[in-house]
Amino acid sequence: MADDAKASRHEAPRPRNPDALTFEQIRERAYELWERNHRPEGLEIEFWLLAERELRSERDKRRAADPAHPVDEAPPE
């Protein structure tokens, strides 16, 4: 029982707003950007911020293209 509580305590919280970007989405995009740029050291924050900007832009474009349809949480693959 204690292991279950410990595991759930370390999970990333789910966003209350379904349109909000998740930590995992940003982390995955930042990692992809970092790898595409030959894994430079010391630029973690820059890649994180770039990932956030890209994901927000994609989300906003999807929202503008179909405002009646809710935006899915996962970015397109």
Rank of each mutant, 00 (worst) to 15 (best):
2 A>N: 07
2 A>S: 11
4 D>A: 05
4 D>F: 01
5 A>C: 07
6 K>W: 13
7 A>I: 13
7 A>L: 09
7 A>R: 15
7 A>G: 07
7 A>K: 13
8 S>G: 00
10 H>T: 08
10 H>S: 03
11 E>C: 07
14 R>A: 10
14 R>H: 02
14 R>T: 03
16 R>D: 07
17 N>T: 06
18 P>F: 01
19 D>R: 12
20 A>D: 11
21 L>P: 09
22 T>C: 05
22 T>L: 05
23 F>C: 15
23 F>K: 15
23 F>T: 13
23 F>G: 15
24 E>Y: 12
24 E>A: 14
24 E>I: 12
25 Q>M: 12
25 Q>N: 13
25 Q>G: 10
26 I>G: 15
26 I>V: 14
26 I>R: 13
29 R>P: 00
30 A>N: 10
30 A>Y: 10
30 A>H: 07
30 A>Q: 12
31 Y>M: 13
32 E>W: 08
32 E>H: 09
32 E>R: 14
34 W>A: 03
34 W>P: 02
35 E>Y: 12
36 R>A: 09
38 H>V: 03
38 H>W: 12
38 H>C: 05
42 G>K: 09
43 L>C: 10
44 E>T: 13
44 E>S: 15
45 I>F: 14
45 I>L: 15
46 E>W: 07
46 E>F: 08
46 E>G: 12
46 E>A: 10
47 F>N: 11
47 F>A: 12
49 L>W: 12
49 L>D: 09
50 L>Q: 11
50 L>K: 10
51 A>H: 06
52 E>S: 15
52 E>C: 15
53 R>N: 08
54 E>V: 11
55 L>Y: 05
56 R>N: 03
56 R>D: 02
57 S>R: 08
57 S>T: 09
58 E>I: 07
59 R>Q: 04
59 R>P: 00
59 R>L: 06
60 D>A: 01
60 D>G: 00
60 D>N: 03
60 D>M: 02
60 D>C: 00
61 K>G: 02
61 K>N: 01
62 R>D: 01
62 R>F: 00
63 R>E: 01
64 A>Q: 01
64 A>M: 02
64 A>F: 01
65 A>E: 02
65 A>M: 00
66 D>Y: 00
66 D>K: 02
66 D>S: 02
66 D>Q: 01
67 P>D: 00
68 A>S: 07
68 A>H: 06
69 H>L: 03
70 P>C: 04
70 P>G: 04
72 D>S: 08
72 D>W: 04
73 E>Q: 11
73 E>A: 14
73 E>M: 15
74 A>P: 08
75 P>A: 14
76 P>C: 04
76 P>I: 02
77 E>D: 14
77 E>M: 14
